[in-house]
């Protein structure tokens, strides 16, 4: 019995090995699923395959635990992974990523905020203040202060659930901290500000959930990803948006350490970050291109929905800071939540 099992094991391992030999001309691309990944497939994978003959297999959703397990076991099945920017820095520090080859990828036109040694922007987006118009009486909210003004804007507030860049920053901005003085974060001050609305917060954990909360009127206003609000508005929902002090966050594309098709993956990143690739993706999703040449290639009407149009009002979130201090902030964060 044991011998049989062992034989079967060896056979299966060999067959996996054999599969890898055939798999040279393909890469596995991993993202969060849903319409974002569909757009990535349309804008990058299909034209890239047509151009190079390299097949792109779609997998997902991104799962950081899975990524780490792969790298630890040495059997890495993913080649390009879409991750959050702060995670890209944290994973690099943990040694989970391959350094990028900038002789293949052209970074001269990439916004320097969205490129590092181990990752290159997938797209960037903003946390914006958005509100359900049917729940707002009187003046429309224009900045983060509105979140903390329960008298003029009654109702629940939706905020992003995870201890990651965004919530603390907007609390500090609303408390009068200047954008340039945000970092290092004054946690005491941020939590004190958040305390004033703690019982009115509904936390959202996924984009779809945030849309449901706002569209159904479960919350009156809150902090949202701009692309999600764009989708609500195109669906005809009575939703308003304020771009004042919109907080810039990004997704990065990274290559896990030990990826089997590293070279093909580099070529893919070169395409996805190219002006055309970025312009095509932005047109489909209303998320912003990280390539400075892309906006010129896009339809004029659309650009008012993109964070690129509001660059004067932008406040950049410092994900390098978060990558470094994320865990200790999370401790404070959890302690505050459960207080």
């Amino acid at each position: 019995m044991r011998k049989l099992l062992k034989g079967a094991l060896i056979a299966s391992i060999c067959s996996v090995g054999a599969m890898q030999c055939y798999a040279q001309d393909s890469i596995t691309f991993v993202s969060w699923g849903g319409s974002t990944q569909d757009a990535q497939k349309q804008a990058w994978a299909i034209p890239f395959s047509n151009k190079t003959g390299i097949k792109v297999i779609q997998d997902g959703p991104t799962n950081y635990g899975k990524l780490k397990a792969m790298v630890e076991s040495g059997n890495v099945q993913w080649d390009v992974v879409d991750v959050e920017a702060d995670f890209a820095y944290r994973a690099a520090a943990e040694g989970l990523l391959e350094p990028l080859d900038f002789s293949v990828i052209n970074k001269s036109k990439i916004d320097p905020r969205f490129v590092s040694k181990y990752g290159i922007g997938s797209f960037y987006f903003s946390f914006v203040l958005a509100y359900n118009k049917s729940k707002i009486h009187g003046a429309q909210p224009t900045n983060w202060n509105a979140l903390f003004d329960t008298k003029d804007y009654p109702g629940k507030r939706a905020l992003y659930k995870w201890p990651s860049p965004g919530v603390l920053e907007l609390a500090l901005l609303a408390d009068g901290v200047k954008p340039k003085d945000l970092y290092p974060l004054d946690l005491d001050r941020a939590f004190k500000k958040l305390d004033t609305i703690k019982k009115d917060i509904v936390w959202w954990g996924s984009g779809a959930q945030s849309q449901q909360l706002l569209a159904s009127g479960e919350v009156s206003l809150g902090q949202f990803w701009n692309g999600r609000i764009f989708a609500l508005q195109s669906d005809g929902m009575p939703v308003g948006i304020s771009w004042n002090q919109n907080l810039v966050m990004a997704d990065f594309l990274v290559i896990p350490k030990g990826a089997k098709n590293k070279n093909a993956a580099m070529k893919f990143l070169a395409y996805s970050s190219s002006p055309q690739g970025q312009a095509d993706f932005a047109s489909l999703t209303a998320y912003a291109p990280i390539n400075e040449d892309s906006p010129a290639l896009m339809e004029k009407g659309l650009t008012t929905y993109l964070p690129t149009h509001y660059s004067k009002e932008q406040v950049s979130l410092n994900y390098k800071y978060w990558a470094k201090h994320g865990e200790e902030i999370a401790k404070r964060w959890n302690a505050w939540l459960l207080k």
Binding site: N63, Y64, G65, K68, F87, R90, A91, E94, L96, K161, W162, P163, S164, K198, V202, W203, G205, G326, E327, A330, N334, L337, L338
Partner: peptide, 26 residues
């Protein structure tokens, strides 16, 4: 709990998932 709960009354599985997924702190 993830879908119907709030964060203020977080339960252990969610705490563990946060450690595994977000912070890679196995």
């Amino acid at each position: 709990p993830a879908l119907l709960g709030g964060v203020n009354d977080m339960m252990l599985p969610e705490f563990i998932i946060e450690q595994v997924q977000n912070f890679l702190n196995w």
